[in-house]
Simulated scan of single mutants.
Amino acid sequence: MAVDNLLERITDYANRPDPYPLYAELREAGVARQQDGSYLVGTYHDIAALLHDPRISADPRNRPGASQGMAEEGPKPPFLRLDDPEHQRLRGLAMRPFGPPHSPGRIDGMRGEIARITEELIEALKDHQQIDIVDDLAYPLPVTVICRLLGVPREDESLFRTWSDAIVASADVRAEEDAGPPEQTGPKARAEMGGYLVDLAEQRRGHPTDDMLSAFVNEPDPAKRLTDEELAATAVLLLIAGHETTVNLITNGVLTLLRHPDQLDRLRREPGLLPSAVEELLRYEPPVHMRERVPLATIEVAGTTIPRGTTLVLALAAGNRDPKRFRDPERFDPTRQDNQHLGFGSGIHLCYGAPLARIEAQIALGALIPRLGTARLLQDPPPYRRNAMLRGPRHLPIEL
Score class of each variant (00 low, 15 high):
P54Q: 05
P140S: 13
G319H: 02
M110Y: 01
K76Y: 00
P142E: 02
Q362P: 08
E360N: 12
Y384E: 02
G37T: 11
Q34W: 06
V3H: 14
L149E: 00
R111C: 03
E270H: 15
D221F: 08
A361V: 03
L314E: 00
D36H: 11
L137K: 14
V31Q: 03
Q34N: 12
A189W: 03
D135Q: 15
R385E: 04
R391M: 01
V198H: 07
A357R: 09
A354P: 05
L51A: 08
V198G: 09
D132L: 08
Y44K: 10
A241N: 05
R268C: 05
D135S: 15
A66N: 06
T234F: 07
M212G: 04
E192P: 08
Q337R: 14
T234A: 10
G272A: 14
F160G: 13
G345W: 00
P208G: 08
L22S: 08
P383A: 10
Q362N: 12
E230D: 06
Y23R: 09
A233P: 07
P85T: 10
R205V: 02
E123T: 15
L281W: 00
P334H: 08
A201I: 08
L396T: 02
D199P: 01
D338Y: 02
F98P: 01
I117L: 14
S38G: 14
E157N: 13
P355W: 04
R266D: 07
G242Q: 05
K224D: 12
P19V: 10
P271C: 14
I131C: 07
E229D: 14
I10C: 05
Q130Y: 00
L312C: 12
D18G: 09
H87L: 08
G392T: 05
R174N: 11
V288C: 01
N339P: 05
I167P: 06
G347T: 02
P78M: 14
A2Y: 01
L141N: 01
E192Y: 01
D46S: 15
L226E: 01
G105R: 14
Y44N: 07
A388G: 14
Y13I: 13
D199V: 04
E280Q: 03
H395F: 03
P77S: 11
L239E: 03
R259I: 04
N339A: 06
D333L: 10
L22Q: 03
Q129G: 15
I369R: 09
E86I: 12
G242C: 09
D46H: 13
A233H: 06
I363Q: 07
I10Y: 02
L50Q: 06
E123H: 14
Y39W: 11
T185R: 15
L378N: 04
L137F: 10
R291E: 02
P75H: 04
S57A: 10
P19Y: 01
D46T: 11
A318N: 03
P286C: 04
V301T: 04
D36F: 07
P85G: 10
E292K: 14
T209R: 15
T310Y: 01
Q263L: 09
E230L: 11
P77T: 10
F326D: 02
D136F: 09
T311M: 12
A361M: 07
F79S: 12
D136R: 13
M110H: 03
D338L: 08
Q337P: 00
V198L: 11
K188R: 14
G272M: 06
L149M: 15
A189F: 03
R106L: 15
D322V: 10
D46E: 12
R111L: 05
Q129C: 04
R259S: 08
E8W: 03
I167N: 06
L26M: 05
L296V: 05
